[in-house]
């Protein structure tokens, strides 16, 4: 498959008063054309920092890139100037956020915001841009777009605002859409609408999606491949089926088991992951999940596990997959 985005050995840190916080620690993954890759993990695991690194939206300082490349269509985004990045953001990569209000200007009419972006990035006349804006709102199923184009963001409901933001992100037919928790703030019925909309638009416009979420139901619904992050690292990645049905890493296993399912008996206990992820101001030397893992071995404390490849597409970072761990509890599939 043709790759549209390749992240290689990306490491991002934040300078704070306490010292360096290593938010993203050497991650690598890629996104193919028309593919949806879900990045899952808890807050603070580095998934949003990764997304914002691709868009170069991190505040620098305190953030800085330590190593790595972000290759988008053959070019390293980390080497781009702010001006070049603006063009890329406007034309080739779209982004939608959890809270639409962060990217919509509350003092500007919704239509003008879309028109503005079009005129700036695609050099079309205002007339044309307005026509396209209406078309776009129609595409994202905003009813009465001709009328709503002259309204302000606060006159829209949460779901409608998210639609407007999607319209805004899609307006220039981006090759890649980064959706950072796009439905977390929405109700389930609205979430269902928005997810359907994203799938429909993906088919129509041939784009790739990086979906950042913590909702495994959404992942199951949307993604082709899944990247599981924990404490700034990728601990497991693979095809969606591999991650759900052939789970390898204890963290992923627990994560899947901690979500209540509708067919669950009420007296079954929900698996919970005790404790909290480690503070990345002093990242652990060994496996970051050691403190919370039920199957931790002595080796895990001070030695960082490498990736073990279970198939061409499926890999996880855990000592239990090491041949020497054979027979230890937890190493079986």
């Amino acid at each position: 498959m043709e790759k549209i985005l390749e992240i290689k050995n990306l490491a991002v840190s934040f300078k704070t008063f306490f010292g360096e916080v290593e938010a993203v620690r050497n991650i690598s993954f890629d996104v193919g054309k028309k593919e949806t890759v879900a990045v899952v993990g808890e807050s603070g695991c580095g998934k949003s920092v990764t997304a914002n690194s691709v868009m170069q939206l991190l505040p620098m300082p305190p953030a800085f890139f330590k190593t790595g490349e972000i290759i988008f269509k053959g070019e390293d985004l980390l080497k781009k100037s702010e001006n070049e990045m603006q063009k890329i953001r406007g034309n080739h990569i779209g982004m939608i956020f959890q809270d639409p209000m962060t990217s919509l200007n509350p003092t500007m009419k919704v239509g003008s915001q879309i028109v503005e972006g079009l005129v700036k990035h695609q050099k079309v006349s205002r007339e044309e841009a307005k026509k396209k804006a209406i078309e776009m709102l129609k595409l994202v199923s905003v009813p009465q777009p001709e009328k709503r184009i002259d309204q302000y963001p606060h006159e829209f409901s949460g779901g409608m605002r998210q639609r407007v933001m999607i319209a805004l992100a899609m307006i220039s037919n981006p090759d890649l859409l980064i959706a950072d928790e796009p439905t977390t703030a929405l109700d389930v019925t609205v979430q269902a609408q928005i997810l359907d909309l994203m799938k429909e638009l993906q088919d129509k416009l041939d784009m790739s999606i990086i979906l950042i979420t913590h909702d495994l139901g959404v992942v199951a619904d949307m993604s082709d491949r899944v990247v599981v992050m924990y404490a700034g690292q990728i601990v497991e990645q693979g095809l969606t089926e591999e991650i759900f049905d052939n789970t390898s890493h204890p963290y992923t296993k627990k994560l899947l088991a901690s979500v209540p399912r509708l067919d669950m008996k009420r007296d079954e206990t929900l698996v919970s992951i005790e404790g909290t992820p480690p503070d990345l101001y002093i990242p652990p030397k060994g496996c970051a999940f050691y403190d919370r893992c039920d199957f931790a071995m002595k080796v895990c404390k001070d030695n960082m596990p490498e990736f073990t490849h279970h198939s061409q597409t499926h890999a996880s970072r855990c000592w239990l997959s090491h041949p020497m761990a054979k027979g230890v509890k937890g190493s079986e599939k």
């Binding site: 269902a192 139901g217 509708l262």
Partner: peptide
């Protein structure tokens, strides 16, 4: 509308989509 964290189930199930807000 609840997304079920099992890809096969989730993708094959029929959703009742509510229109509007």
């Amino acid at each position: 509308a609840i997304p079920i964290p099992e890809p096969e189930v989730q993708r094959s199930k029929k959703r009742i989509v509510l229109e509007g807000d």
